[in-house]
Design a protein around this nucleic acid. Structure first.
Lengths: 214, 214
DNA sequence: TCATTCTATTTTGTATACAAAAATAAGAAA
DNA sequence: TTTCTTATTTTTGTATACAAAATAGAATGA
């Protein structure tokens, strides 16, 4: 029997805010005041503060020039720079992953992709977003390098609110899932150059759509 | 006249700890207790806590399995993974930098390298460490992408305590400075593939020495 | 009307207090 | 001695309090 997994108030608030930002409920530019959040989460300002500090360290929130912290918001130029950095890291992950594929990691990637296809066919946007995250995470994990995986995940969290906007229609979902399929072929080819190139093209596509939607 | 630049207690403590860890005064594995630090910095536990939280988020500290936070410590396997990730990011930085070199950024890199050579010739380890950081920072900055620069810097901070150990003799410093020179040639060649390859070889060298010293 | 100074309010940064959890130490039983 | 239990002490997580800074608002003068 496992313990009730007591989670600290700080972590609970951090996770909740991260979730809301990822889901787009808290839009970029919105200000978060400590007192308000403390009231909302029925806690004191102390854990709220700590959660905000952690989210700020991750770049999900930014401290405004004046006062208070805000959900990170980027103009086109900044967004392009973030995507460029993400682009590089994702490409490196794809290359490394292709060199180190195990039966298990191949299966994980394929399973995630199967979920993507199912969600796309069903036109279920929420399910697709979740499956899409899992798909990319599976690739990161396949590098066998938790540090690479961590920075890749971090960028994914940061760009989440901007990427999610681009999935509007069922066609968007299906197009994305197809793009995944090409990417998988490249990675599974075990030609690391092709894997890297494949990821670059997938990310470029993703960026162009994100730019259009923001 | 500029204002006295009021710095928060939290930031002061964070910077001080970062400095001490980078300098190797606080060795990997050492435990940091809040009460003790609060006494040392003549502050309450609150700002100490916040500083520790931020350093933990940056991976400079880790929260132990049991209790308390510790200066991050890595075994050979983990160190290899971190260096691999750093390797990838540095290579990407070098490639991008080589594509975007401006007169100003070239000058910054050359100036930093001149300082490295001077410190190496003088056998001044502390000065070399500082100049070496500036040299790499100048390359990051030359990418024109603050997000790339930020992750590269973060890895540099994390690996600082392990890299610094490898500079023991004057010959080590001179060898490092010479390695820089080759790297500069590759980056300034404006052949981005060569730049990336050059950085990879520089980082591989650096890693091998770090492994030997740790 | 606009700018400016002063006042009031909000909000943050830091200190302190306290309860709960974990680590440590001590003692008892095998 | 070793192991198990229990008591003690640390240490952490959260709440609360308060002063200083920042913002907003009101009043004053041009």
């Amino acid at each position: 029997m496992r313990e009730p997994a007591k989670i600290s108030v700080t972590k609970r608030i951090e996770a909740a805010l991260m979730e809301e930002i990822a889901a787009g409920e808290l839009e970029p530019g919105v200000r978060l005041d400590e007192a308000g959040l403390a009231a909302r989460f029925e806690a004191s300002r102390t854990p709220v503060r700590e959660a905000l500090t952690r989210l700020t360290a991750q770049g999900i929130l930014v401290e405004g020039a004046r006062r208070g912290v805000f959900v990170a918001q980027y103009d086109r130029e900044e967004l392009a720079q973030i995507f460029e950095a993400m682009h590089e890291i994702e490409a490196a992950c794809a290359r490394i992953a292709s060199q180190r594929l195990t039966l298990l990691s191949r299966t994980d990637i394929e399973t995630a992709q199967a979920n993507c296809i199912a969600a796309a066919k069903a036109g279920d946007r929420t399910a697709y977003l979740r499956a899409n995250e899992a798909f990319h995470m599976a690739i990161y994990k396949s590098t066998g390098n938790p540090y690479m995986a961590e920075i890749a995940s971090e960028f994914r969290r940061r760009t989440g609110p901007f990427r999610s906007k681009k999935f509007q229609t069922k066609e968007d979902l299906i197009a994305s899932a197809q793009s995944h399929q090409e990417l998988i072929n490249d990675i599974f080819s075990e030609d690391s150059a092709a894997a890297s190139k494949g990821m670059r093209s997938h990310m470029t596509e993703s960026f162009l759509q994100a730019l259009r939607a923001n």
